[in-house]
Design a protein around this nucleic acid. Structure first.
Lengths: 214, 214
DNA sequence: TAATGTGAAGCCTTTCACAGCA
DNA sequence: TGCTGTGAAAGGCTTCACATTA
């Protein structure tokens, strides 16, 4: 394998591969070819091989990929070998939905703390998690929490960001469109529901061209 | 203006431009240069000019863009000149969060109906919307609803998709990772929270390269 | 034989530089 | 002079074809 700059698009696909492989592993499958994995996930087989090749050579010509080995490799690439912990800030409906979402654990990701500034909510439990006052954010590092999920209203987004950055998190997943991104050194991934919903009409007939549905 | 295939990436940016312009309009601004809009939104000025140029020439050399005119143009491109209606299926925490999200209206988008299969929820009101039985999905067309938002659990995703497609919707925003996309003719945009959260660790130091935070 | 890994081609997107207009 | 609109260059990603390996 030679050096290649790794396309961010390839990184974006790794979790999909991981999910597919975990499913296969759960079914007891031992190995799979790029073609079969491609059919399963809706990618092309050369895309899958190319993506893996950015990170090394994991397969066996003539046979395919050893599923367990590949899962391990992708976990390593994504830095999910150890369980990663995140804190959620803003326990409204969206925050609750994210807290109760069961789908993180298979990846080795856990939300282990929740914060809010509403005194009525502080102290309540959601599953195993007790909602804390946002003033406690500064203690994240000590608790081994490196990531933040921001589900606060727009007005509170910027100060929540600043608090998380001050607390030393390494990355933030934000549902708020209202932050001035860029000035921080931490990676911020933003999910903006309105942005995605609003461009649906564009793809309506008379524009029947299309693309990856992201 | 000459013919150009329009990059999907440019379409993806239009709602951001629209939001910025609406904010400016609200502040009473009349016109803006590509450079100032770029600074406001965190894009580059040539990117903005290029994006607009795919759709036509909206600006005035030496002056910039007339904000109201530009808003109208982007609305037209995104097919948001008339108010677009969507139905939400699955009124759990996430569904509630989306229903209560106030940010769609400025774009000319409205969620006007909500469906669930839980008898306890049917008949309840969320804001102005009364939750209906999913069996009522087939009547969407008559009510002028062209889009669907899917916030049901994984297991129910595929059948919800089929029902929405059968009801004649033109596009679907899905929060479920579990649909076999591709076989439908309708545009599907998928938001997968776990996928986005899970790749945060990758960007953690020792991989300090970076990119657009999407 | 069956499948991987990869250089090279092709395509799409972004950036640049500047002609042209108000 | 200041800013737009756009051809052309540069850069990045995907697809292809095939040499290579088990």
């Amino acid at each position: 394998m030679k050096y290649h700059k790794i396309p961010d698009e390839a990184v974006r696909r790794l979790p999909f591969y991981l999910r597919g492989l975990l499913t296969l592993s759960g079914r007891g499958c031992k190995s799979i070819s790029s073609r079969d994995l491609a059919d399963l996930l809706g990618f092309s087989h050369w895309q899958i091989r190319k993506d893996f090749s950015y990170f090394g050579s994991f397969g066996t010509p003539g046979t395919g990929y050893d599923i367990e080995k590949l899962i391990k490799q992708i976990r390593k690439i994504l830095k999910l070998e150890v369980v990663r912990k995140a804190a959620l800030v803003g326990v409204g409906n969206l925050g609750l939905a994210v807290l109760r979402y069961p789908g993180f654990q298979v990846y080795g990701f856990e939300i282990t703390a929740a914060f809010d500034n509403n005194p009525k909510k502080i102290g309540r439990k959601v599953g195993d998690i007790t909602i804390e006052n946002v003033s406690g954010l500064c203690g994240l590092k000590k608790r081994g929490i490196d990531f933040g999920v921001v589900t606060v209203p727009c007005e509170a987004a910027q100060q929540t960001f600043d608090a998380l950055v001050a607390a030393g998190v390494k990355g933030i997943l934000s549902f708020s469109p209202c932050q001035k991104t860029g000035r921080e050194k931490v990676k911020v991934i933003t999910i903006d529901i309105a942005m995605d919903l609003v461009r649906l009409p564009y793809y309506t007939p008379a524009n029947p061209k299309r693309s990856k549905s992201r």
